[in-house]
């Protein structure tokens, strides 16, 4: 195990092959989503991260810089925040969402109540409730692979080197050198949210990816991920207050449902 394992994604190296999306599903046994059409912009499919899609390669067409067409790619996934709202707001006792000593944030399926608090409050829209299991599911940074000395599946499969895995310190060094070449370039995740374990090279700035400035504030920032080309986040809506209200409601409902499933299983 690395001391502080991290992932660095660089959209300028990414060729949009979407091997990462497939490898994630294959390793984690997640189902393919059969929508019949590209639900998101360009070839993006499905529309957004779901309980069965922990890593989504989003594609959209942009005319940026001197009017040049850019087919922009980005990975949507859990950022493994240092100060994660999913952990701080998780109402389960003990907490289902935890951040381990390596900086990897995971949701323990045995402890998860399926209340949806993390789902509603994650600034990156990463955890999603699984209808099948009635718990929140998301990227685990392949802790199971890491424990046996392997890289996360998305990294292993990435042919271009756009998704790198390594000690956070080292990836920060690489990322910093890369963003320096771009006027508006930033290394997202370096400080945001107290610094996350997933880092992004953002050559055209933060707004361009629609990433929030201050992700640990949690509630309601998801809205800023929307852009005109991005109906992608359609499923996640509602500003803070509404969200809080529905959380309470959802909590009871889902806890009940989960209880029911548990009972059924035992019978």
């Amino acid at each position: 195990m690395l001391k502080n394992p991290a992932i660095l994604y660089d959209p300028l190296l990414c060729t949009g092959c979407r091997g990462c999306q497939v490898a994630c599903k294959q390793w984690n046994g997640l189902q393919g989503e059969s929508s019949g059409w590209f639900e998101g912009p360009s070839y993006t499919n499905p529309k957004w991260i779901s309980a069965n899609t922990w890593l989504l390669l989003q594609m959209h067409e942009e005319t940026i810089l001197d009017g040049k067409l850019v087919w922009a790619f980005t990975q949507r996934r859990c950022h493994h925040c240092t100060d994660p709202t999913c952990v701080s707001l998780c109402p389960a006792e003990p907490k289902a969402a935890t951040r381990n000593e390596y900086g990897v944030v995971s949701i323990d399926p045995a402890l998860c109540l399926g209340c949806g608090t993390c789902v509603e409050n994650c600034p990156f829209g990463a955890p999603k409730l699984s209808e099948e299991y009635a718990i929140a599911r998301k990227c685990t940074m392949c802790m199971d692979r890491q424990k046996v000395g392997k890289k996360p599946a998305c990294v292993t499969t990435c042919p271009s080197g756009a998704t790198l895995f390594g000690e956070r310190e080292e990836l920060v060094r690489i990322g910093r050198a890369r963003v320096r070449k771009h006027k508006k370039g930033i290394l997202y995740g370096l400080r945001e949210g107290g610094g996350s374990s997933v880092l992004y090279v953002l050559p055209y700035g933060r707004e361009y990816e629609g990433f929030p400035e201050n992700p640990q504030s949690g509630i309601g920032v998801i809205g800023s991920l929307h852009r005109e080309t991005r109906p992608a986040l359609g499923g996640i809506s509602g500003a803070g207050a509404v969200v809080l209200g529905s959380v309470a409601l959802g909590l009871t409902k889902l806890a009940e449902r989960k209880d029911k499933i548990r009972r059924e299983e035992m019978e």
Partner: peptide, 23 residues
């Protein structure tokens, strides 16, 4: 395309690839 291959037999029978290019 990246997501499908040749006349499709090896890819159009794989759900994870059909997710990427469904039609």
């Amino acid at each position: 395309l990246s997501e499908h291959w040749q006349a499709g037999q090896m890819t159009r029978n794989i759900t994870l690839l059909n997710e990427l290019v469904p039609a």
